[in-house]
């Protein structure tokens, strides 16, 4: 109850403060650093949002793709950019919560080197099997793994991706053993699932959903806590006896640490409004993700939880970087 009240007060103050702030921020181009290549799962939400803000608010965005090292190079540069509100960027599960725990080269601290602004979208990870797979549902797959630990091979789009970490978490929580076959990206991986070379594959819902819809693979489960709104019939992993199990791949707008409050508030309010636009919501849904939104404070708390969770998973899986 208390949080709701706080949130309501915050939302009101944001709305009230908006006219005053809108006059002086923004007064120039806002650079949006996307730490991934154009056209990818992080780039598209960034472009859709900045496009909406450009059209609706007349703010001028420059999207700058700065790919490299699983999204950590772009984020590293963002963390060092001037915190004047004119350089912001996109962080997400992999480059804010997973990689900092996994790679010694990552120089930034996800909690202290950034100003959280707003989470945009989230999507769970989907578990797919070949059409002729012996497993009718996810429960049978788990049983087979219990009967013969380590016998099942699973594909992932790469080491340290959401898919890999989702299974790492499942293995810890359920005391299971699977063997990972990492791919570099989804193309070859999806082709190998269809060909039945791996037992199952774990990748973001947008990347697996089209193939499940067309009937070339079967989607057994998703890793969201509750059934995912776009595909409510697909059971969650949690519903197979893994209480509280969740693995989300979220994308969020962040800035360098120490951004002016008025800029954060203006961006947060504007993006919150964008995330209520039905066209934009529908567009995100065809891609397999749902919108998030919320206040910067809520996001800060959410980020802290995510960083803690995934650092724990990385450590327990023995993937921690040697420093």
């Amino acid at each position: 109850m208390k949080t709701i009240t706080t949130a309501a007060i915050l939302a009101m103050t944001t709305v009230l403060a908006l006219p005053a702030v809108a006059q002086d921020y923004p007064s120039g181009n806002i650079e949006m650093v996307v730490p991934y290549p154009p056209g990818g799962g992080t780039d598209i939400p960034a472009r859709l949002i900045s496009d909406w803000l450009t059209r609706d608010r007349g703010w001028n965005f420059v999207v700058l793709n700065q790919p490299g090292a699983a999204g950590t190079i772009g984020l590293d540069q963002l963390s060092r950019a001037e915190a004047d509100g004119y350089t912001i960027g996109i962080g997400q599960t992999a480059n804010m919560a997973i990689n900092p725990a996994m790679n010694a080269e990552v120089a930034y601290d996800p909690l202290t080197d950034f100003t959280p602004i707003i989470p945009i979208v989230t999507q769970p990870v989907g578990i797919i099997v070949p059409n002729d797979s012996p497993f009718e549902d996810f429960g049978q797959l788990v049983e087979a793994a219990r009967a013969d630990p380590g016998s099942l091979l699973y594909g992932t789009p790469g080491q340290g991706t959401g898919g890999h970490m989702a299974i790492a978490r499942l293995m810890q929580q359920g005391d299971l053993e699977f063997e990972q076959v990492p791919y570099s990206g989804i193309a070859q991986a999806i082709s190998d699932v269809m060909g039945g070379v791996v037992d199952f594959y774990v990748g973001s819902v947008p990347s697996v959903l089209p193939h499940a819809n067309s009937g070339s693979v079967r989607l057994l489960a998703v890793t969201s806590l509750e059934p995912f709104p776009i595909i409510p019939d697909v059971p969650t992993v949690a519903s197979f006896g893994f209480e509280g199990y969740e693995a989300q791949d979220w994308k969020a707008v962040v800035g360098p640490a120490g951004m002016p409050d008025e800029a954060v508030a203006a961006l947060n309010a504007a993006i919150n409004e964008a995330l209520q636009d039905p066209t934009l919501i529908a567009n995100f849904e065809t891609q397999g993700s749902v919108v998030m939104g919320g206040s910067p404070e809520e996001f800060r708390a959410f980020l802290a939880r995510e960083v803690e969770t995934w650092a724990g998973v990385v450590e327990a899986a023995g993937l921690t970087a040697e420093r």
Binding site: P38, G39, G40, D43, I44, R47, L48, P206, L209, P210, H211, N213, S214, S216, A282, N283, T286, Q287, G288
Partner: peptide, 13 residues
């Protein structure tokens, strides 16, 4: 990705 920006889910269908 360009298709997805236009709200068309790419895939075999």
């Amino acid at each position: 990705g360009a298709l997805m920006i236009h709200g068309i889910a790419p895939g075999p269908q």
